[in-house]
Every structure is written in C-alpha cells, then in structure tokens.
Design a protein around this nucleic acid. Sequence first.
DNA 1: ATATCATATCTTGCTATACAAGATGACAGG
DNA 2: CCTGTCATCTTGTATAGCAAGATATGATAT
Lengths: 121, 121
Amino acid sequence: MTGEERPDSANGRRAQLLKGVAELALLSLLGERPQYGLEILERLRGEAGVELAAGTIYPLLHRLERGKLTRAEWRIEDDGARPRKYYALTDLGREELASQLVEWRRLAKALNAFLDRRRTK
Amino acid sequence: MTGEERPDSANGRRAQLLKGVAELALLSLLGERPQYGLEILERLRGEAGVELAAGTIYPLLHRLERGKLTRAEWRIEDDGARPRKYYALTDLGREELASQLVEWRRLAKALNAFLDRRRTK
DNA sequence: ATATCATATCTTGCTATACAAGATGACAGG
DNA sequence: CCTGTCATCTTGTATAGCAAGATATGATAT
C-alpha cells in the first residue's frame, strides 16, 4: 500500500457502483432463458452495461444456487462444443427478481429525482 | 451463523444496492452547501431514499476528507446548539461529483433499458 | 500421438464499504 | 448532579466485487 489511495480511481468506483446491481441484472437475464457462465458475462457487458470479471460471475452463480434462486445442469449442445453448465431461474428466483426490480426502481427513481433537483438549482 | 443464509433477506440486499450510491448521493448533497453528519443522514434518507446507518456516514466522511474531496471545520451556530462538524466540497470533490454523475447516469440508463426490454418480451 | 490453443469453470487471496453496537463527549432541564 | 438527547467516532463482522491463476475439455495443427 502506497499510503494515500484516493477513493476515486475509476476501476475502484465502477466496482462499487456495481454492487447489488450485478445480481439483479443476472436474474433478469436468466428470466429470459437458461444460460451458461461466459454467455452471461458477455451479454451483461454488451446489453446491460454491467462489466463483471470472470472471477465474479462464478461465485455469484454458486451463491444463487445455494439460495435456490437458480438451478444448474450440464448440457451438451449440438454445436460440437464441450459441455457447459446452464443456469435457470427457479420459481423462488422469479419472486426474488420481482422484488429486486421493485427495490431497484424505487432507488433509481428517488436518487435520480434527488440528483436532478440539485443540478438545476 | 445458522448455516444456510439465503442471499435475499431484505436488509442484506438493500445494503448491497446502496454500495457505491451512498458516496454519490452524499457528494451531491454537499454540493448544495456544507452540512454536518446527522443532518446529512436525515436528508439522504428523506430526500434521496438512501438509508445509511450512523456507523456508515462517519467513516465515509473521513474517507472523503482523506481523499481531499471534502474539507471539514467545527462551527458554532447561533441556535445555541453545541459545535458541529461541517463538511464542505472541495474543487476536487466537485470534479469527482461530476464524474460519478456521468457514471451513474450511464449505468442507470443502460440497466433500465435492459430491464425494460426483458419485461415486455 | 501430442502439443497447443481457445473455451469454460472454479478457487484463492485481497480490498472496499456497509452494518450493528457501543464508546465518548457536550449541553440542557429537572 | 443526574439523565436524556444530540452528535461524533470506533470496533468488529459480513458481503461482494476484483485479479490472477488452476484445472479441464475439446478442436486444430504438427
């Protein structure tokens, strides 16, 4: 540690903004159809603007599975690729998604209004 | 620890959603005028929908001060109250606020579009 | 066959930031 | 002087992200 780390290095802050949002984005994505790790990673980055590291997605997937929000199975596709582990939402996962959606919208709306109010003053 | 903590207890998740957002809300609030700890806490809760604990706000304020994003001074108001420590944004703090605003809006916009797309399908 | 490359999953060790609970101190009113 | 309230700050714990690298499989080239 060099001693005076400022809290505003772009990498560090992006990570902080992501907290809590990663799980929601993932649940929403899986709500569409079952998908596997790297596929999830790429779609979150490309479509949701959420850049997770590979070392982040697997622990997250395991946590969701332990909490019974997702269910996993190995599958072999006809594209001749190696087996991949597909994660699917459970019913509990769908409930959780709905509840996180409500909470996210509440926070985003309140915070945006708050920020806008201050900006135009 | 009882052994099987599900990741969806409301308290736990709210905390996660807050991560990264607390600092932005605080910077924005201080952009208006210097304020002290408990005042900040109440306004963030009431106006921004961001519920921080008292044990969260002071370490956060100290971190910002160490990073030279804020400057603090003890002040005595005429309302006969005891001295309070007022925190004010520095120029660096204003830059940081601007940059976090950009990042927040990018993420909120991308994620909202992503979530909406999936919902109507 | 075997070496190598790309894909894919998972683990380890670290850091950042939030929380709960409680310590500390100052002032006001009884 | 004692007690309650306001206000700041500290300590210990948990969560969730990251970087880096280990491991495994199948495809392709030698």
